[in-house]
Each structure stands twice: as C-alpha cells, then as structure tokens.
C-alpha cells in the first residue's frame, strides 16, 4: 500500500468528497420535498391523483438509477437541454430516491391506526388539521429510520455521478488512477472516503431503529 498516492492527490480526493457530499445533500433535500408531494398525492381522496402518484412510485422504483441518469445526461440534449454530469446525476438521484421516500412516508402515514383519524374528525378537526396535528407527528417517528436508510443508499448511489463525469469521488479516482497508473491503492483510499460517510450514517440508522423498537 502506497500512502503517498493519497497525499500527492489529496486535493483531488477532497474535491471528489466535496462533490459526493454536495450531490447527496442536494438530492436528499430535493427528494424529500418531491417524496412528500408524491406521498400526499397517494393518500388523497381524489382518485386520478392517487393513480398518478402510484404510477410514479412503481415505475421509478422498478427501473435502474443508471437508466434515469442516462436519460438526463444523454437523452435530454436531444430535446435541447444540456446538463453537465454533476447536474444530470444529481437530478437523477433526486428523482430515483424520491420514489423510495414517497413509499416510506406513505407506509408511515398509513400505519397510524385509522381510529386516530376518526377520533380527531369526530372531535371537530378538519381533515387537514387532523393530518397535520394528529397523524403526521405519529407517522414521523415511524418514518425516520427508513428515511435514514434511504439517505445511506443515496450516498452510495451518488457514485453514479462517476459514470457521467460528475466530479464525485468515483470520477476523481478515475483521474488519479489514470495519472498515477495505479488502480488498487487509489480505489482503496476512495473506499475509505465512502466509509467515513456511510459508517456513521448506518450506525445512526441502527440506533434509531433500536430506539423505535423499544418505544412499543
């Protein structure tokens, strides 16, 4: 193992780390907003909106992230919109993750007992009041561990940026290994950078899951 590879190319590693983190944070925020919107669509009483939400979730969840990324990177320029690798990758990540987040939120909301809604409605709450003050606070507790898991997947999935020259860790690793002609060591160090991000996240998720189990 040649540690000088890490130190000689440290700025490139850090640049990749920064872009991996940036893409993950942007995609997290974006997919959360989009996911909540889709989840709300799926629990409304208006059928066509429900169908649209379900179709979105089922379609996106069942196709590869790479395919979505290619649509934004290689497909959109045909329609006159050119995105760079970072933008295309981040948008694709957002859309892909939003389907999983929508599903987690919907499952959380629907796991709150129906009696809660009925009790709230008969105490004079409107539907949206009951949703906001009674259902959502209970649902959030259930939803947090799966959301944490999605964020963990998101960080790992952000490596997709490397396929479309998205400046992330995988992309920088490619550059470092073509300039140093070393592959093994270069990728071991990249792996360490990923683990720095993902291990604390997965410990956090495990902790939340355990705490939730106990609270029942």
């Amino acid at each position: 193992m040649n540690v000088s590879i890490l130190f000689d190319n440290f700025s490139m590693y850090m640049d990749g780390f920064y872009h991996t983190l940036l893409a993950s944070v942007i995609a997290l925020a974006g997919s959360f907003v989009l996911g909540v919107a889709v989840a709300v669509m799926r629990i409304t009483v208006f059928k066509p909106l429900q169908w649209l939400g379900t179709a979105y979730v089922e379609f996106i969840r069942n196709i590869p992230l790479l395919l979505i990324t290619f649509v934004f990177y290689f497909g959109l320029p045909n329609a006159g919109l050119r995105l760079d690798g970072f933008q295309a990758g981040t948008v694709a990540l957002t859309i892909y993750t939003s389907a999983f987040i929508a599903e987690a939120i919907r499952a959380g909301i629907q796991s709150v007992s129906k009696g809660q809604m009925e009790a709230a409605r008969s105490s004079g709450f409107t539907y949206s009041q009951a949703m906001l003050h009674i259902i959502l606070p209970q649902a959030i507790k259930i939803v947090i561990p799966p959301l944490g898991n999605q964020f963990l997947n998101l960080v790992k999935n952000s490596s997709i940026l490397g396929v479309v020259a998205g400046l992330d860790l995988m992309y920088q690793a490619d550059l470092v290994s073509s300039s140093t002609l070393v592959v093994f060591d270069v990728y071991i160090f990249v792996a360490l950078f990923y683990l720095v991000l993902t291990i604390p996240l997965s410990i956090g998720v495990n902790y939340l899951e355990k705490r939730l189990e106990k609270s029942y």
Binding site: L152, G162, V163, M170, V183, V186, Y187, L195, T198, I199
Partner: peptide, 19 residues
C-alpha cells in the same frame, strides 16, 4: 454494505489484476 456497488465493480475488474 457501506460501499457503493459501482466501486466494488470497478475494483474487481480494474484493481484485482494488479494483485
């Protein structure tokens, strides 16, 4: 489990030949 699959694919194909 905490590594991206893409990294593992890269590693298996491009790095393992070095050893």
């Amino acid at each position: 489990r905490n590594l991206p699959l893409l990294l593992i694919i890269f590693f298996t194909f491009f790095a393992l030949p070095e050893i």
